[in-house]
Structure formats: structure tokens, C-alpha cells
């Protein structure tokens, strides 16, 4: 005998609000690919721009993984509210402020900026500048996700490793990270998704890249904004549809990897 479970009120409400999230995305995809189908939206400028965005977001996500995994682990095990609050700052301020802050830091107005310029490492309109801003704004997303991964892990293997004589940092890299590799990769891809969507800070610090191999190329979000200003809605919507498709693929890969991690269990 089989029984069909009827959806309750909470399920129906959840479906409705999920549809609300989908509506603008669906409109962009339908209008971008089927209605406007603007040739400018499919031009090489758009694909170079998307390539720059994917490239810089990937590097930013990798840097975030390297730099912030220890912090996420530390917070998850020793719950430092000060560190948690500080790690959330970049997510809670308007992102043009992040761009302005970086612009100030790397400008000749500050000793650090003068030093960077003296060694030929200007961040303004450069790939390092773009990556730095993306890493800064996507770090909180990764820290939160990684912290959640670590918090769900039992601490016994770590206690065993430390009892065997490993320091906390060695325990992190020999025990904790290998045990959580898939979920941390998923967290890294989620932070990459966040980096792909960034506009506010990079419109200030890296509006157009002046370096090889992306000389003259704008990050996708900036290019779409410029298309909207120069050409109007059609090209902007088409370019947006292409960008959304790429973002959804990254997000789906992240969810798929996370799903594999969740489905693994011992005997």
C-alpha cells in the first residue's frame, strides 16, 4: 500500500517564496535568450569579460580558501565573537566603500600605497586589484560556510590527533581538512559565486583591466552596467542572461559536490 503525502502549509509557503526568487532570474533568461537576443550581448567583449570574471573569481576563491580556512576552524572550535564580528565586516558595509578603501590604501596618499607603486605593484585597474577586492568581499561567505562544516564535524578525531602530539595547525591540515575536503570545496565554490556577482567594489578599484591577457576588458558586472548605460536594456539583458547561466552552473557544481559530501557515511 502506498500513501501520498500532501504538502502542508509551510511547504506551500516555501515553494511560493522560492518562486519569488526565481521570477527575476527567469525573466532575464527568457528575455535575454528568446526576446531580445541582442548580438552585442553575445559579442566577444562579453565572453572576454565573463572569462575575466571567472578567472579572477577562481583565484580570489582559492586565496580565500588558503587564507581563511584556519580562521574558520579557529572560530568554530574556540568561538571567538570578536573574530567572528570582524570577519563579517566586509559583508555588512556597502561594497563601494570597500572599493574606496582599497583605492585609498594603494594610492600615493598612503605610505603603503607609495611602497606598492615603488615596486611596480599598482592595484588600480589591475588583475591583483580585482582579485584582492573579490577575495575581500567573498571571504565572509566562505568563513561562514567553512565554520558550519567544521562545527558539524565531531571533535574526537582532532582530540586524538593532538593526543598523538600534533599541533592544532597540523591537526587542521592532516585531519580536519582531508575529512571535510568535499564540503570545503563546495564552500570555496559558493564564495566564488559570491565573487562572480560582485559589482560595487570592483567598479571603483578595477573598472577596466589594463594588463595582459585582459587588457581593455571589464569584469562582467561592470560591463553589463555599462551596456545598460550605453545601449539600453536589450544588450544588458542578453549579456546578463549569459552571465547568469555561468553563475548557475558554478552554483550547481557547488551543490552537487556538497550533496556527495552529505551522502557519504561510514559503516
Amino acid at each position: 500500500m502506498t500513501s501520498t503525502k500532501k504538502p502542508d502549509g509551510l511547504t506551500i509557503f516555501s515553494i511560493v517564496v522560492t518562486i519569488l526568487i526565481i521570477i527575476p532570474i527567469a525573466f532575464i533568461l527568457v528575455y535575454g535568450f528568446a526576446v531580445y537576443h541582442s548580438s552585442i550581448g553575445f559579442s566577444s567583449i562579453v565572453f572576454k569579460s565573463i572569462a575575466l570574471t571567472i578567472f579572477s573569481s577562481s583565484i580570489a576563491a582559492f586565496i580565500v580558501f588558503l587564507l581563511f580556512t584556519p580562521l574558520a576552524y579557529h572560530i568554530s572550535r574556540l568561538s571567538s565573537s570578536a573574530m567572528e564580528t570582524i570577519s563579517d565586516i566586509s559583508a555588512s558595509i556597502p561594497h563601494p566603500i570597500v572599493g574606496i578603501a582599497f583605492l585609498l590604501i594603494v594610492s600615493p596618499l598612503t605610505p603603503f600605497g607609495r611602497f606598492l607603486i615603488s615596486i611596480g605593484l599598482g592595484l588600480f585597474d589591475s588583475i591583483p586589484g580585482l582579485v584582492t577586492a573579490l577575495a575581500f568581499v567573498s571571504a565572509p561567505v566562505y568563513i561562514r560556510a567553512a565554520q558550519s562544516v567544521f562545527s558539524q564535524n565531531p571533535s574526537e578525531p582532532e582530540i586524538l590527533a593532538m593526543g598523538l602530539g600534533l599541533s592544532r595547525i597540523k591537526t587542521l591540515y592532516r585531519v580536519v581538512v582531508p575529512n571535510s575536503a568535499r564540503l570545503l570545496l563546495s564552500a570555496t565554490l559558493t564564495s566564488m559565486s559570491r565573487a562572480i556577482s560582485e559589482f560595487g567594489s570592483i567598479a571603483i578599484i578595477a573598472y577596466v583591466i589594463l594588463q595582459f591577457p585582459f587588457a581593455g576588458v571589464m569584469p562582467a558586472s561592470v560591463l553589463i552596467y555599462q551596456f545598460f548605460g550605453y545601449y539600453g536594456l536589450g544588450p544588458a539583458v542578453t549579456a546578463s542572461a549569459v552571465m547568469i547561466l555561468i553563475s548557475i552552473i558554478v552554483l550547481l557544481i557547488s551543490r552537487f559536490i556538497k550533496g556527495i559530501g552529505n551522502n557519504r557515511s561510514g559503516v
Binding site: 565531531p154 574526537e156 578525531p157 582530540i159 586524538l160 590527533a161 593526543g163 598523538l164 585531519v175 575529512n179
Partner: peptide, 9 residues
């Protein structure tokens, strides 16, 4: 070294 039923790699 402390061992309980979850203490393994």
C-alpha cells in the same frame, strides 16, 4: 591519548 568511539581518522 583519549579514545572514544569516534576517535579515528
Amino acid at each position: 591519548v583519549y579514545l572514544d568511539r569516534l576517535s579515528f581518522f
